[in-house]
Design a protein around this nucleic acid. Structure first.
Length: 891
RNA sequence: GGAACGUUAGCUCAGUUGGUUCAGAGCACCGCCUUGACAGGGCGGGGGUCGUAGGUUCGAGUCCUAUACUUCCA
């Protein structure tokens, strides 16, 4: 069979994924004989498309799951999707709009019909995309946050928390998104610093006879009948219910207990005093607008000010504003500034940087707005969730996220859980005709409770709350609900798989999701939901910019897979993804990934092409040392690899297997054992090579599942139903001869030096050269003799006790190696080189001597360190001796 | 205003308890090498006073202080 010169993943990936599914390698069920290993997927938005962030965190999850599966654990990766209340509703609204249908013109029932239709149409796409990536999820366990079982769990939890007194309803200042016309939680608001303007507006003083009111600086007291207020939001002045000054502010002492008049609408408001007002900012006078600013609201409560809400749900002004009714808030801002100026009431305008809140979903500017919402008290829930992260019962990777987590948990606000949307879990509260309400699991139960309050209530007079719950109110239950842990708390699945092992997610949802899952875990199961949390950073483009549709800098993951293969893209993503740090994505990384695949593929072609014979041919090379070396080296790397995995250093783990496969296996091992062109290979060597190759494939498999399966299947005869997916992961071999490693290192150094010699002298690699070695440790070289000849193209090796004249030489530790050259040596150059080396070695010796001569060092440093220094000294001295001899020989 | 267990080669990053065989890796760059597993390859090479300024120490990329910049949070 002819193997292609380059690896082509396209057909193979589909073939193997189908094979894996057919044989149910990804299916997991409780098995008392095996250790469980479980990950629940961060459920992507049901109507979403795979983006680079998904690619990253799902690749990491797959690596972890596949490795656990090969280690013989019962590996369970639970997939699923999130109904994504706001995002999905926005998409459906947009779709309807295209059809010419306004959401508000149709009934809730009709809208939900459309929404479900939409979900059915697009809901499976993202999961199919994950399959293309090679994700080894147990697809039979696929869940959806709005499927009946999970929805029931949400309702039950709501009722339970209400009964416990943790959920309450009330009028509070919330973050209002005028575009999607719903309240948002604090976490859904992102603040950005923007260039704004600070408007200085004149407010006339009521009942004033024109006495001097305001003095500024060194100027003469001016006669003014107004005060000046600086504000960034002039459009809200109609909602002002007071003007506030600092009681210690000397400039305004005469204003105490006076009244000010709001410009344009001429409404009188009291001038109040509060230390909250900064005397430095603006003019020291603050307009108080309780309806449209959180701080003003608090101030209003304190001073019992009335609240005038002048905004509609969509951000336009209502009748209470008296002016500009029906206009959008930003249009009003422009207009009112013009009108104030026209009326001579605008003193000046300054440039100003201010922080403005934006909706993370719609990017609309958030309005602080008073409204009636449902809230969840968080303090009690946060306590165990905080403690168990701080004491590492749940470990964060990297640990620095503990700080961020702590500062949020210690200043936690109550969670606004109601949303003025239709797509989602409807709040299980029902209102009686008199406005009182009951909270219950079902309409029947609600009616029962309502009748206890008022016996005249009927099913039709009881009205369910129109709002739905925040999406995260179902997501926070995910690690429990995917195993039906609420409906059926003692079922075998949840008992076996909960708590799960690792959670892999972006740090941007640490509060939205991670923190709340931890709270839910302790509150509802009395146990953590997972043991480790691995935080990924954001995927950015190579210039460090966020990936966004507007910039068009976000590659299409499926196109990348088509171009580089899933294995190539997976390795590409992991090449540069330190935990918690942003990943600057460059397509070049995927290219590097696919080149790596090709390298492995060609190693396979080489091995596959060998003819095997039982014994070594007469002039064959003894490569036993190569086998012993690789065994030891593999062991060493495996230990290192395991350490990286333990610390969740995925990028380092990949880097480690990359070098093992490319450098150690391909560049050294295969070159060492490779027979001459057309010659057969000894059976023993062949078998060792295949064994090593299989081990390499196994450690590579979690990173590049497809190509490793393909090669593994071809490397030896396999039975139907076998797969590298479930092949046992290599274990550290205690009997390997680790002692050969330093010897091999010396040999490799020698080979490199000889190659270097050729290079620097322009000698062809094809021209064989003789080699003489002067060493006290001949046995270290002997097993490698033939290998040195092969790799450095050496015609013969001789061990000598004296210097060799007319030869290029180099020094490795205390050994001296000579390569006689037919061409004449440039003695001057040679001397220069040796002198340079000698200088360095002497300098080195000096520093070691200085250190060892220092009494404080010898007495204070650890004995190992001192011993190491002494060894360094001995090595350096041997080297210096050899160099000096070399120099004297040159004359 | 607070936090960073951020600032190391052109780029992206390692560097674990302070010890000049640690100043490293990958990519990029520069040489040389194609009938040979792979040119998507091989063999070599150049390149950084570890943000800046002080300090502690026999010794600092590693610890302390200040400062600049960057990022995150409010």
């Amino acid at each position: 069979m002819e193997l292609a010169k380059t690896y082509d993943p396209t057909a193979l990936e589909e073939k193997w994924y189908r094979y894996w599914l057919e044989h149910k390698f990804f299916a997991a069920k409780p098995n008392p004989d095996k250790e469980p290993y479980c990950i629940v997927i961060p459920p992507p938005n049901v109507t979403g498309q795979l983006h680079m962030g998904h690619m990253l965190n799902n690749t990491i999850q797959d690596v972890l799951v596949r490795k656990a599966r090969m280690e013989g654990k019962e590996a369970c990766w639970v997939p699923g999707t999130d109904h994504a209340s706001i995002a999905t509703e926005a998409k459906v609204v947009a779709m309807l709009k295209e059809k010419g249908i306004e959401k508000r013109s149709i009934s809730r029932e009709k809208f939900l019909e459309y929404a479900w239709e939409w979900k059915e149409k697009y809901g499976g796409i993202i999961l199919d995309q994950l399959k293309k990536l090679g994700a080894s999820c147990d697809w039979d366990r696929t869940r959806f946050t709005m499927e009946p079982n999970l929805s029931e769990a949400v309702t039950e939890i709501f009722v339970a928390l209400y009964k416990k007194g943790l959920i309450y309803r009330g009028v509070r200042m919330v973050n209002w998104d005028p575009q999607s016309r719903t309240a948002l939680s604090d976490e859904e608001v992102h603040y950005k610093e923007v260039n704004a303007k600070l408007y200085y507006i004149k407010y006339p003083i009521a009942e004033n006879g024109g006495k001097p009111l305001l003095t500024t600086g060194n100027q003469q007291p001016e006669t003014r009948n107004y005060l000046i207020i600086a504000t960034t939001r002039p459009e809200t002045i109609m909602a002002d219910t007071a003007v506030c000054i600092n009681p210690n502010d000397e400039r305004y002492r005469h204003l105490h207990s006076k009244k000010a008049i709001i410009p344009l609408i001429n409404r009188e408001v009291p001038i109040i005093e509060d230390k909250y007002v900064s005397m430095e900012f603006g003019t020291g006078c603050l307009k108080v607008t309780p309806a449209h600013d959180l701080n003003d609201y608090e101030l209003g409560l304190k001073h019992k000010l009335p609240v005038i809400d002048i905004l509609n749900e969509d951000g336009t002004l209502n009748e209470k504003a008296q002016l500009y009714v029906g206009m959008d808030r930003f249009a009003v801002r422009k207009q009112i500034v013009a009108d104030l100026e026209h009326a001579g009431l605008l003193e000046k305008v300054e440039e100003y940087k201010s922080n403005v809140g934006y909706s993370e979903r719609t990017n609309a500017v958030i309005e602080p707005k008073l409204s009636l919402q449902w809230f969840l008290k968080m303090e009690e829930l946060a306590k165990p969730a905080l403690d168990n992260v701080l004491n590492d019962s749940i470990q964060f990777h990297p640990p620095r996220f503990k700080n961020l987590y702590r500062s949020w948990m210690e200043n936690i606000h109550n969670w606004t859980i109601s949303r003025q949307l239709w797509w989602g879990h409807r709040i299980p509260a029902w209102y009686l005709p008199d406005g009182d309400f009951v909270v219950a699991e079902s309409p029947e139960k609600a009616l029962e409770l309502a009748r206890a309050k008022d016996s005249t209530v009927t099913a039709s007079s009881l009205k369910q709350d129109e709002d739905v719950l925040d999406t995260w109110f179902s997501s926070w239950l995910w690690p429990i609900s995917v195993f039906d842990g609420f409906k059926n708390p003692d079922n075998p699945d949840i008992k076996y798989f909960y708590p799960t092992n690792d959670l892999v997610t972006g740090f941007d949802i640490i509060f939205f999701w991670v923190a709340r899952m931890i709270m839910a875990g302790y509150e509802f199961k009395g146990e953590k939901p997972f043991r480790n949390v691995y935080f990924t950073g954001m995927v950015r483009d190579k210039l460090g910019r966020k990936m966004s549709k507007q910039l068009g800098n976000s590659p299409n993951p499926l196109e990348l897979i088509a171009q580089y293969g899933a294995d190539g893209v997976r390795t590409g993503m992991l090449f540069s993804s330190p935990a918690g740090n942003d990943l600057l994505f460059d397509e070049k990384l995927c290219e590097q990934g696919s080149r790596f695949n090709n390298k492995i593929w060609n190693a396979f072609r080489l091995v596959k092409g060998w003819q095997v014979q039982p014994v070594r041919s007469e002039n064959g090379c003894d490569v036993n040392a190569a086998i012993r070396w690789f065994e030891a080296r593999f062991n060493e790397v495996l230990t290192e690899l395991e350490d990286h995995y333990q610390k969740f250093r995925m990028s380092d783990a990949l880097q480690t297997v990359y070098k093992l496969a490319w450098d150690d296996f391909c560049s050294w091992y295969l070159e060492m054992v490779k027979p001459e062109m057309g010659q057969p290979i000894e059976r023993e060597v062949y078998e060792a090579t295949v064994r090593f190759f299989e081990d390499i494939l196994k450690v590579l498999h979690p990173f590049m599942p497809f190509i490793t399966e393909e090669i593994w299947q071809q490397l030896q005869e396999r039975k139907r139903g076998e797969s590298i997916c479930v092949a046992p992961y290599p274990q550290v071999n205690g009997t390997a001869d680790q002692g050969i490693l330093p010897e091999a290192a010396t040999v490799f150094e020698a080979i490199t030096q000889i190659r270097n010699l050729r290079n620097s002298r322009g000698l062809s690699p094809k021209e064989p050269l003789p080699l003489f070695i002067r060493t006290e440790n001949v046995v270290a070289y002997q097993p490698f003799e033939c290998i040195i000849q092969k790799l450095a193209n050496i015609s013969s090796i001789g061990f000598v006790t004296d210097k060799v004249a007319d030869a290029a030489s180099f020094i490795i530790k205390a050994d001296e190696l000579y390569v006689p050259l037919s061409m004449t040596l440039d003695a001057e150059k040679e001397r220069e080189k040796l002198t340079k080396e000698l200088e360095y070695a002497r300098g080195f010796r000096e520093s070691v001597l200085k250190k060892l001569g220092n009494e404080r060092f010898v007495s204070n440093a650890k004995p190992e360190v001192v011993a190491a220094e002494k060894q360094k000294l001995a090595d350096a001295e041997a080297k210096i001796k050899a160099l000096e001899e070399g120099l004297s020989r040159l004359g």
